[in-house]
Every structure is written in structure tokens, then in C-alpha cells.
Design a protein around this nucleic acid. Sequence first.
DNA 1: TGACAGATAGACAGACCTGTCTGTTACGGT
DNA 2: ACCGTAACAGACAGGTCTGTCTATCTGTCA
Lengths: 199, 199
Amino acid sequence: MTTPSGPRPGARKRIVDTAFRLFYARGPRGVGVDTIIDEAGVAKASFYKHFPRKDDLVLAYLDEVDRTWLGQLRACARAAGDHPAEQLVGMFDALHSAARREGYHGCAFINSAAEASPGSEVHARSVDHKRLVRAWVTDLARRAGAADPEGLARQLTVLLDGGLSAGVLDADPEVAASARSAAAVLVAAACPPARASTP
Amino acid sequence: MTTPSGPRPGARKRIVDTAFRLFYARGPRGVGVDTIIDEAGVAKASFYKHFPRKDDLVLAYLDEVDRTWLGQLRACARAAGDHPAEQLVGMFDALHSAARREGYHGCAFINSAAEASPGSEVHARSVDHKRLVRAWVTDLARRAGAADPEGLARQLTVLLDGGLSAGVLDADPEVAASARSAAAVLVAAACPPARASTP
DNA sequence: TGACAGATAGACAGACCTGTCTGTTACGGT
DNA sequence: ACCGTAACAGACAGGTCTGTCTATCTGTCA
């Protein structure tokens, strides 16, 4: 289960963990529920009890990715320094970490949205995630003293999306480095007297 | 038909045209060959005569996209001016045109690669396309006098990928504008005495 | 001991998908 | 007039997918 208190150690968590791994590697449509059931070691009835439709599991997967990725962005930002301008550049370190991870396969949201119907919940959830990230970056840009915080946030999130989504092709660490250096240039140009260079 | 000389008026072209439309909208895996056969108005035998495996049609589709997209990038670059630095920024107008097009759905290569097996021909073809684009941008950056042409090209292609691939979520024209403005900043920073501003 | 909640195993229906195969029709060149 | 090529129509096999259903097992609480 999701909280550590409940008397439920297995089943649902095994399903979600397995789905996370398989969905990210092959895309939700590339993984049948039978495969998940086998690898998670649960019964079909248990599966459909927790997730009446397959899409319910896909949404749970996306929520998991949303939590994880935002956490990594925040951690990298914080680790880069106290000044918001430094953090705007530092968050791109999350890209580098992601690219080094085994089985890196690009952006889960863009990959999922690519195979979902435009009006579906899966698609909407992906849009929500991107909006959330951009709102966070906008806030950071505002605190960094950017003349146009929303403009800078858009530039940086486009860059972030590019670095992330290209990972579905190859896990080239150069891409992350380029995105970071580009971010440094953009932040420096947008934040008036800032010393946005990073150690 | 493919060549203007041959005695081939229909069939194959109808298949490719239909595939282009449907594959781009729903992704190759989201479209069955029966659907293509129906909408193209061809017989199943004709389909499999021209494309023995479905993947052969997917590859033809990707080649079509490759040709089209590179053509648009080049056209936008040329239209932006004679100086390579101007062209590096101008190519981002292709993003804006794409976003305004009916049925815009992001990057066909990233979307296709997301659902293809990592070792497949479809995946490899997508990687090739991105490499081709980057080579062209690198050449432009070199002629623009960039201190580090490959570095600038990487920055710009990451930006381009971000602007393009995000289109699978929503066709926001602001994204294209942000990518273009960011490109202008990056080009200006990378090309020594350049006046990289655009009309 | 008995009742119950939650899990397990696995058959099944119905839809869809790829690829094969048979047979028919239309047309262009000789 | 004849023949070969390309296209047409559509049945069929074999597989996969989602989601439903029955039936059995296990542990906990009273």
C-alpha cells in the first residue's frame, strides 16, 4: 500500500513497482496485464480488484513518476546553492543523473502521451505534470529576479523537455551537459545583475 | 507515385499517404493494417506486396517525415536571412508552423521510438534522423563563426527537440516562441561579434 | 470452531492484429 | 486477340489483449 502504516505488505505495491519498471521500459501499451501479473506474482482477480481498468494503473504509474521526478529536480536545485539563479541551472543535474541510470528511456509523460488518445485521462495527467513543473520553475525564476519569470521558465522547461525526451533515442550524457550549459546562458541573460555561473 | 515517370498511379502512394496521416495521429502501434487498407482503399494483397511487414511501412513513413521536416527547417532558415547566425535562429520558425498545423502531435521520431524496441530498425532510423539534423545545424554553426560549433549545435537541437516533442501534450504556440527567443540568446552568446538578432 | 477478508490459480469470452491464401477484375503491350 | 501485371475482394489461421468469472487456499478475529 501507499502508506507505511497499513497491514498490507504486498500485492498492490508489487503491482505498482512492476508496472513502473515495465511501463517505463516499453510504454504502457507495450505491456500486457498478464505480463504484469506474472512478474508481480499476483492473481488476476487481485489485479483487477486494485485497478479495475488498466488505465487506472497507468495513472498510478504516472503519479509515481511525477512524485519522483519533481523530487529529483528539487533535490538537484537545492544542492546547487542557495541563490535561486543557481538553482535554476542546478536542476539540470537531474537530467544528467537520469541519463546515467540503467534503463533510461526518456520522458515517461511524453512517451505515454504519444500513445494515448488526445482526450484521455492519461493524456490530461501528462499535461498536468508539465504544468506543475513549469509553475515551480516560474516561481524559482521570479525569486531569481528575472525580468520575465514566465518567459524564462518557458525557455528552461522547453530545454528540460528536450534533454529528457531525447533520452528515448540514446542516453547520451552530452545532451544533459549541453542543456545545462544552455540553461546557464539563458539564466544569466534573463537575471539582471546575476552571477549565475556555477561551481 | 514515388517517381514521376513510372506507370504507377495509385495504390502505393495511397497507402503511404494514409499511413502518414494515421501513424502520426495515433502512433504506428495504434493503427492496424486493416484500418490503413480500408482508408486507403486498397486490397490486403496489394498492401503486403508493397510492404511485406508492417514495419516496412513504418520505415517509409519515417523517411517521409525526415524529408519533410528537414525541408521545412531548411526553408525557414533560408527565409530568415543570408547570415548563418540568422538562419540558426530562423529555423525555429518551423516549430511555429508545425504547432499551427491541424493535427499537430509532436515529434514523429520520438513518438515512434517510444513504442519501438530499443534495437529495432524503427528506433535506429529515428536516431539517424536526429543525427542528420544535428550535423546540418553543426555546419550552420560553424559557418556562423561559433567558437564551439558542435556545442552550440547540441544546445540548439536539444531546444528544438524540446519544442517539438512537447507538442504531443498541447499545441501551444508560446512554446515555439520561447524556443526561438532562447535560440537567439544562445546564438548571440556563442558567435563572437555577431549581430544575431532577427527582424 | 466458525465466519470472513484477501489472496491465489486459471479458464473463458470477445475483440483486435498480423500475415497468408484463393480467386476475380481491369488494362497495356505485342 | 492474347498474355502478363497490378490491383481488387475477402476468408482464414494463429496469436495477443482486456476484462470476467469460478473455485480454492490462508490467516485473523471472535
